[in-house]
Design a protein around this nucleic acid. Structure first.
Length: 111
DNA sequence: TCTTTGACGTACA
DNA sequence: GTGTACGCCAAAG
């Protein structure tokens, strides 16, 4: 792994999130030692305009499992639709059984 | 260079 | 459960 910028690191981890799984900003920030969950959110803000455009930012939610970033998508409902499409139930802008679908970046180190 | 602004999280009353 | 406060650090103006 080369030396990368904040957002590149976040992109990398975010793209590794398994389908149907979700994680939160704090987990990513902690895994990448960013020191602040805000950095993750900031990076994902750029993800839309990124050339990659393949960053599944909809799999990243806040600590409560709320779709706090939906407003940054093309449409406020896109995020929820994407999650439901992957088998993740969303209700009232919040993920159902968040703890059950939760995924930690450290899973990448295991294998 | 300084100030403001965040897709956040934790602590406390 | 709700509201306030603070830390965290980079980007934009």
């Amino acid at each position: 792994m080369k030396k990368q910028s904040y957002f590149e690191l976040v992109y990398y981890v975010t793209q590794k999130i398994p389908k149907g799984r979700i994680t939160n900003y704090g987990a990513i920030a902690d895994y990448l030692s960013l020191g602040s969950a805000r950095m993750v959110g900031w990076a994902l803000t750029q993800s839309n305009q990124s050339d990659m455009g393949d960053v599944p930012a909809h799999r990243v939610v806040n600590r409560k499992g709320e779709l706090s970033g939906r407003i940054h998508f093309k449409t406020p409902t896109l995020m929820q639709e994407l999650l439901e499409e992957e088998g993740v139930q969303v209700q009232n802008d919040k993920v159902v059984d968040f703890d059950k679908y939760f995924w930690h970046p450290q899973e990448l180190d295991k294998d």
